[in-house]
Structures are given as structure tokens and as C-alpha cells.
Design a protein around this nucleic acid. Sequence first.
DNA 1: ATAGCTGCAAATCGTTTGCGCCATG
DNA 2: CATGGCGCAAACGATTTGCAGCTAT
Lengths: 151, 151
Amino acid sequence: VSPVESLPQQERLQAFRTLCLRHGLSVTHQRWVIYEVLKSMPGHPSPEEVFAQVRHQIPAVSLGTVYKNIHAFLDSGLLREVSLHHGTLRIEANTDPHHHLVCRRCKAVFDISEADFEPLRLRDSARVPNGFVPDHFAVEVIGICDRCQQQ
Amino acid sequence: VSPVESLPQQERLQAFRTLCLRHGLSVTHQRWVIYEVLKSMPGHPSPEEVFAQVRHQIPAVSLGTVYKNIHAFLDSGLLREVSLHHGTLRIEANTDPHHHLVCRRCKAVFDISEADFEPLRLRDSARVPNGFVPDHFAVEVIGICDRCQQQ
DNA sequence: ATAGCTGCAAATCGTTTGCGCCATG
DNA sequence: CATGGCGCAAACGATTTGCAGCTAT
């Protein structure tokens, strides 16, 4: 439970107003409820899952509104998506061990050799969920590519 | 240019036959062309992009066949996809610095604190594409989760 | 006031599936 | 000759869009 979530609703709303102001978004009832739902859901919800929850509080809400608001949050940088999501399947034809550089703006992906990293490993103290057996690491270096830099 | 790509076509085909045998796939003309196209394309092609290329060599090929073969490659482990692809957008509501554990089989995602990793960094010798400005790392620990383990 | 947001319904896009025919092992 | 793969077309699920009325600033 993060400190923000334990604040009374009044103060959470105030914090949300500030956040929206900073990110250039206006504050609507739907947007506020969608944000609260996002923050309260465990894991990494999909738009449909968010919609289902929001519906409990605003029965007339539309799925389109949920999508529009999620994009408002992502585009303004107020929230992030879990992983680059091209919306389409991408095949990795490079079978050499390597990782990826991803441009935050245009989502272009570049390869970078695994040998370019200092060895990566979990601390001995790391607490991994029960019984999860790690196999390998996939690293994304998020940043801005040359082209996008110049615009 | 990988060594495989520079072999004459005859030998590449032979290598492909071996690969298919090892992964339990039969060898068809379409499958072979799709594989060659995948290997020859720079970057991380989408099914549509592959389809467009394959069409140059087999005008009557169908998009469905491209999808089926891509899945044959992925399911058999002959190739990988670039990144976990839920097929749906996932929102990251956790704003604490953390990384992800991803189950290869069911694609479930768990959070793991950034503090659980030994410090991650690029070697000084690392060669990053011109002008790419790194911002932060996103690590996925790929493996098998408890539930999937037991099935 | 006015620019932005909402709900609705239709459109679009990526992907999957069912089927009758054909190629591979 | 038996199984699996092919092309085709229809189905499907996720996401986007256009629009007319309402709301926040």
C-alpha cells in the first residue's frame, strides 16, 4: 500500500488535480475514477479490466472513454505502459544473444550485444515470487533515438 | 551479415531442413521462404511486413500462412518474439522503480524491486547507435512461474 | 465562451479459424 | 496414404474514430 493510497479521498483528489495540472489534463469525474481504479488494481491491468472496475462506480461509462483516458495518461507521461507495445507481433530473427534499445518517442528498436553489458544478476537477497524459475534476462534500454532528438 | 546468410542457397536449405527436423516441423516451400525472409530482414519485422516480402517470391501466398508459420517457429522455439506480447495494452500503475518477471508460458507478469538487482550498466566499450541517449533500463526476467511449472 | 470530454455506434486493424484441396514424410 | 500445410473467406477481439451533446476552465 503506497502512501498516496492511504490518504483520505479528499487529499487524493487534490493530489490528482495537481498531477493533471502539471501534465496539461483537465480534471473530469471519469478521469478521476479511472485513475483511482488504475492505482488500486494489483498487477498490470488491461483496458477491459479497468473498464470492468470503473463500471462499478460509473455504470454508464463507455469503453471508449476508458481508452481515451488511458491514452491521455500515457501520452502526457502521467503513467507508463508495461512494455513496448507495438500493437503488433514482432519477430526476433537475430539469434545472437543481445538486448534492445527502445526509443521512447517513436518506439524504434535497435539491437545491442549482450557483451556490451556488465554482467547482470539478481542479488542473493532478491525475493522472487514462490517457485518462479528464471531462465534469462531481457534488457530494454529506454531512451530517445537520434532522429527524435532533433525534432 | 551472419555466416549462415553467406552460405550458398543449397547449404542454407540443408541447414533449414536440419533445424526443422530438430524442432518437429515439416519442410514446405512457403515455410522455407518465410524463414529466409525473416532472416534477411533488418530489425524486428511484423507479420504484415514479412507477408509483403514473401509475396515477392510467392505471389499467391496468404497472410494466414505467414501467421501460421510464424507461430510454428515461435511455438517450436525455433525463433523468438521481440518482447512479451499480450496482444493487449497493459498499464503500469506501480510508479516505484522496479522490473518484471515474465512467465514464458502463461505470460503472467510479476513486479520485482529494482533494489533486487546488482547495479546494471553498459560497459564503457559498448557501442550504441549514433546519438541514442539512454534514459533508464527495463529488465524482464523471463522464466516459468509456479503454476505453469506444475502442469 | 470555448476547448475539451463524454457516450454511442460504426469502422478499422491485427489475428485466428474452418474448410476443402494438396504436398510432405 | 496419412498427416500436416495451403489458400480462401469469414469470424473475432482489441482499439480507434466521428459525431452530437455536455462540462470544466
